[in-house]
Design a protein around this nucleic acid. Structure first.
Lengths: 228, 228
DNA sequence: ATTATCTATAGATCTATAGATAATGC
DNA sequence: ATTATCTATAGATCTATAGATAATGC
């Protein structure tokens, strides 16, 4: 009587409400307007105030989830687009170059990344664990030469973030050129010879259009980045 | 009758109240507790609530001033300690290495830097304009080779910030070793040969103890960083 | 006499919940 | 019958100011 299989439609309704709240939070995050009343959030999500507490304990709770899901979505996307690359140094560089372009392609997501990036540089979700994995693999494969992979990860995070800040400060700057330059510099710092670093950073990139608006359809809740 | 020379003691009293508020705000910033009532701030500053509005229009106003003054103090300190260096590449490296050590020496100031660093990477106060000046001087002197000084500045900022985040995440990590490594990598990226970069980053640093708690006694209001 | 600070508080929020309403399950 | 959502609001903040008090100037 009490035990029953999960009713699908109710779950989906619940999920829809939650997503509306998370999406509203992501839009607010992108504008750096996190100091708003819960009522304003629920209005933006077109949801009753009371529903908020069905899903989150506090504003912090919601914003934390919103940040994590946005970046996890991008991480999953990067994984998919680099899955068939054999050379971990190339996978690292491709992710880095695409993430550099992200600042122009998804400015709102970029702003979320910039605002919370440093805290997330050591998170176990999102971009950090993936960059860490690539770096360790590249070291193990003898492609990178660095006795301090944690520092390498930190420098990678710092470069991604500061590039984003620069691109927002200078709207006319070419994101692709700058991102590739940053990637080249990092590869060289990690022991890749200059010419090869240049070659790697001029390889073709996967077509982001093919994946952008499709569901991640995997471990995550199907959360994706909603373009405003 | 109305026009009179500024009464000194009143000014100083006023300044004392303002400083108490700024100092309280800096302590809160260091703990990332900016979402507090104004009353809590004034209690921390041991000042009446009403006094707040004698000096600031809003919480944001106060916190903005608190961040700016804290980083301006460090910038002035760096300037003083590198004033007599002829080689701009060396001045750049010295400031960078000392700022790396800052994360351990003044963890509260470091946290403020980390939390607001990206926005301030293009500010006209604090550390950014000084790093920019050093980079341009080094390029002009033929010491740095980079056709994109803005990107160089961004990468510098990113490296400083991500190093700080790493040092906070790993309390046992050696700040001096890591900071010098980061500085070396940047010098190399800017075209300094590996051996010389290593040499520059093992030069003696000025003694921070000599300057830490003395007033900046210059253009700023005498604002300094108060150790808790 | 002038200026700054402090105390007390009105009025404007904002949070969190209780109870009513709507949607789904069976 | 069960679960989720919505509406309305009590009670807890929080902001900003008015008026009283204290410090300084002359």
């Amino acid at each position: 009587m009490a035990e029953q299989t999960a009713p699908r439609r109710l779950d989906r309704r619940r999920e829809r409400t939650r997503n509306a709240l998370v999406y509203a939070a992501q839009r607010l995050l992108a504008e750096r307007r996190t100091d708003v009343a819960i009522q304003e959030i629920t209005e933006l999500a077109d949801v009753g105030v009371g529903s908020f507490y069905n899903h989150f304990d506090s504003k912090e709770d919601l914003f934390r989830a919103a940040v994590a899901e946005a970046l996890e979505w991008w991480g999953v996307t990067m994984d998919r687009l680099t899955a068939d690359l054999d050379d971990p140094a190339v996978a690292y560089a491709q992710s880095l170059r695409m993430t550099g372009r992200l600042h122009r392609r998804h400015p709102e997501l970029s702003r979320i990344l910039l605002h919370h990036g440093l805290e997330l540089a050591h998170s176990d979700r999102g971009l950090a664990p993936r960059a860490h994995r690539d770096i360790l693999a590249a070291v193990h494969a003898g492609r990178f030469r660095t006795e301090d992979p944690d520092l390498a990860l930190a420098l990678t995070a710092g470069a991604v973030l500061s590039l984003g800040a620069l691109l927002h400060a200078q709207p006319e700057r070419d994101a692709a050129v700058s991102a590739d330059l940053v990637a080249r510099g990092l590869l060289q710092q990690f022991g890749i010879p200059a010419e090869e670093a240049a070659r790697i950073c001029s390889l073709d990139l996967p077509d982001l259009d093919l994946v952008d608006s499709t569901s991640t359809a995997g471990t995550t809740t199907g959360q994706e980045w909603h373009q405003a």
